[in-house]
């Protein structure tokens, strides 16, 4: 298996693992999934085409960029879930957001 294909499979597995934990429905069809800190969050954040947003300025820019379908929010991002909801409310667009959280066990 080529490394590119392996990476693609790993990203897919990381997405599915994160999505298994359920989501928060955000306004206008966006969804917020949590992803535990570790290989899953690392692989999602490094995936090409994924915008990493660690401040509200970068999050809003990512929401407004039609090229970004998936947005990754790192553990130390300066924002609350309320902020994320607010920004998704005023920028109506369908995106998938993954928010890194601490490992539960």
């Amino acid at each position: 298996m080529s490394s590119e294909l392996m990476n693609k499979v790993a990203v897919e597995v990381a997405h599915q693992n994160a999505m298994e934990r359920g989501c928060k429905f955000l306004p206008h069809g966006s969804r917020l999934f949590t992803v535990e800190q570790g290989w899953e969050s690392a692989i999602i954040s490094k995936d090409k085409g994924v915008a990493v947003a660690d401040t509200l300025l970068t999050l809003e820019a990512a929401l407004r960029n039609p090229e970004n379908k998936v947005i990754f929010i790192p553990l130390d991002a300066a924002m609350t879930e309320g902020d994320i909801e607010k920004l998704c409310q005023r920028n109506a667009i369908t995106k998938t957001l993954f928010k890194e959280v601490k490992k539960s066990s």
Binding site: P27, H28, R64, P66, Q89, R90, N91, A92, I93
Partner: peptide, 21 residues
Amino acid sequence: KSFMGALQGRLRSKKSVEVFD
């Protein structure tokens, strides 16, 4: 209501629709 208004915009363009409170 705002979902439907914005949906019309999302149907037309890939750009986000600004929702002003």
